[in-house]
Design a protein around this nucleic acid. Structure first.
Lengths: 345, 345
DNA sequence: TTGTATGCGTTATCAT
DNA sequence: ATGATAACGCATACAA
């Protein structure tokens, strides 16, 4: 049983092929009698007719496909984002092509080209692009929206995440609790991750503001790992915190994200200290883990799912030509206080 | 700057459009002089030529797109699977359309139809299909491969996961450690999740074999949740274990997967008992959490990433018509012993 | 070794 | 209210 075409439907319904097209697309400017409409619809159903997307695309230049670029879906922050975008996209007839770039510029280029070949209608970035040149070029021919930290240099729609403020929130919270000696633990702070840098900048700024600039210890991994699994960030948090504890005394640890904070928490408990009694820990992102482990980790929420949907709305508006504006939207981050932070002793 | 077509390339290179096609597709049966090859390639590069996938598909009937059906990417088991498939697919020029079905049959149908519209070349299921009728129909016109529990009734390629054996492994391990009174904690055991049932069946079989059939307590959620986030399974484990502890004495708890086991672990510790000294806990799947939390959870590994790649190989073989066989491959599960299980006291 | 011509299955314009 | 017809951009059989 081969796939039926609109010609087959036309034959069965005893009408012309163009009539079939009119009926199936509900063309407003063409009027079709109810009788033929029913005939066509019935024939289409009987034949299990599915329009050929290639032929359709050739005429309309729309694929109803969007590309989603993320570092890796194994990092629990991205499934939240991925799922909200995918689900919302599906409700609008779009499918999502998932691309795990590992934050590697060569992979990023590879995927951008692959998406171009597949004629996606638009691209959503779940993080700040690393290959600015290429992305900017592509953004000129194709709608692109970024869900993440804004980079002033890139003229692309951004649904922002104010990481600097987030850094401020967390560190001020600790300072308010009486903490003076604080460590910031992070995966690599290279330029490939803007939000990590900005979180740290927010922390540094706040420490300075409170005259504690000499009491901040920064420990960061130096190299991005080549292959990802979910353990990389936890291990980073664990390892760096372990060596930190061997060297210095601090009363609070800030992980660059919840995964790193989770690793830090493990390291602290491993050394026989109690959280939050002996030491406070906090992270960023408000992933499910920060809520579900004991003690729950104080963190910052970014309204990821809201921002993701907003990004898709914006993307579709641009795809359908309803807007040309390049603008930025920024949500204010929200501090979520849990059991892992308490008064410094 | 509009997108260049092969005609544009032909003009610039001073050759015919078909020559361009021959060169760009490296047709083996056609011989082209080096000189024209270079001319064409240069023109293509200069014009930033990207073949129109619609026109190409219209001729070749291939989209280089594959659909991936999973329950939800927010459950940490699926990102592992998703990433290995996506990465491997990309290396072969395929993009993956991600579909989160939430194990709901209406969503499953919706996505299957959407994938058909998008003319995917094949579909990979990351779980046992629920809508057997529809899937079986589609499998007749389109390659479909399942990575998951085999269902004897469905004639579809399956890269198996022997959940019965996995259930045996875990329960025999506990029995070997001297545990007699054991609880099995699970999300819903409805027919929409074959692997859950089979895991339990393996456990029941083993208990019987050891004359402990009356010492097994089964506690399962009754309703699948409508909307998913990662907390559902953890909460299920936590809640069911809490009420279990209030009712009966057991020395070991088996979670239907690592997430449920994690919740169970939290509940046990919450009650002031120690794992594994007072009680043993184990799960299934070997997700990163089972390794990273303290104590590490004894679990069963299913070689997900291997099986995923195998599934894609098989799918591509079928897409390219290299094989028509419907067969099953089954990996034996592997028990991974960690700190959460110990001798019964 | 290369060019010409055709058709894939739609959408949409123009007739009728 | 409907039908005939012309693209869309490519792959490929056939000619030269």
């Amino acid at each position: 049983m081969k796939k039926a075409t609109s010609v087959d439907v036309a034959k069965m319904a005893g009408v012309s092929q163009s009539t079939v097209s009119f009926v199936l697309n509900n063309k407003a400017d063409v009027t079709i009698s109810e009788a033929t409409k029913t005939k066509v619809l019935e024939a289409a159903k009987k034949l299990n007719y599915v329009p050929n997307s290639f032929a359709k695309g050739l005429k309309t230049n729309q694929s109803k496909l969007i590309g989603l670029m993320i570092p890796t879906v194994t990092n629990p922050f991205y499934p939240m984002l991925t799922q909200s975008i995918e689900e919302y996209a599906a409700s609008k007839g779009y499918n999502v092509l998932l691309c795990n770039t590992y934050r590697r510029i060569d992979k990023e280029k590879f995927y951008l080209d692959l998406l171009l070949e597949k004629a996606v209608d638009g691209i959503i970035y779940g993080f700040t692009p690393n290959f600015n040149e290429h992305v900017s070029n592509i953004a000129r021919q194709l709608p692109v929206v970024i869900v993440g930290e804004k980079d002033e240099n890139v003229k692309i729609n951004t649904i922002g995440l104010n990481s600097f403020n987030a850094g401020e929130l967390v560190s001020q919270h600790l300072i308010d609790l009486g903490h003076k000696k604080i460590a910031f633990i992070s995966t690599p702070l290279t330029k490939t991750s803007l939000s990590r840098q900005k979180r740290l900048n927010g922390v540094i700024y706040t420490m300075k503001k409170n005259n504690l600039e000499n009491n901040l210890i920064i420990k960061a991994q130096t190299e991005e790992r080549e292959t990802y699994d979910s353990t990389y960030e936890i291990e980073t948090g664990y390892d760096l915190t372990s060596s930190l504890l061997a060297e210095t005394e601090v009363t609070a640890v800030i992980g660059v994200n919840d995964m790193v904070a989770f690793g830090a928490l493990n390291a602290i408990i491993q050394k026989g200290r109690k959280v939050p009694q002996d030491m406070s820990v906090c992270g960023f992102d408000n992933i499910y883990l920060s809520k579900m482990i004991k003690p729950g980790i104080t963190t910052v929420d970014h309204f990821t799912s809201h921002r993701s949907k907003l990004a898709l709305d914006l993307l579709i508006d641009r795809i359908s030509g309803r807007t040309d504006n390049i603008y930025r939207i920024e949500y204010e981050p929200l501090l979520v206080i849990r059991e892992s932070t308490a008064k410094a002793k």
